[in-house]
Amino acid sequence: MTTIRTIAVGFDGSPDSEVALVWALDLAGPLGARVVAVHARGLLSRLEGWNSREMESIVARLAHEHGVADGDASVRVEEGDACSVLVRCSQAPVNADVLVVGSRGEGKHPGLLLGSTSLELAQRAEVALVIVPGERDAASV
């Protein structure tokens, strides 16, 4: 049986990624697992004056609200496209047992197959993958 110690969740600040983060935190609490919110930095992000502090505060607030200890929720920022960065999370140093993503990231066109992180991850992930429906997806079911 697989023991879930580390959950890596794709987090780009979009509403769907926040839904995915909350789902991961709710899973982590009872298991005593740690959650790593992974943010992939693309080429343009270095031109946008982006910093990780806002992201860290969101993760810390949500972790607190969902009963996950501060030390068990963290933010990891890596250069690369979202899919490749998340695939790498199943290896050291993150060693994720599960990957969690929202159904749509920021800047994606709904229904567009090209560039769809969740669909590409479904093909490339080396560990279990959970795709959490966003609020619109859930409402439309």
């Binding site: 992000s45 979202a82 800047g107 994606k108």
Partner: peptide, 8 residues
């Protein structure tokens, strides 16, 4: 067309 990913 449109955005293919956050960069492209």
């Amino acid at each position: 067309g449109g955005d293919l990913d956050e960069d492209t």
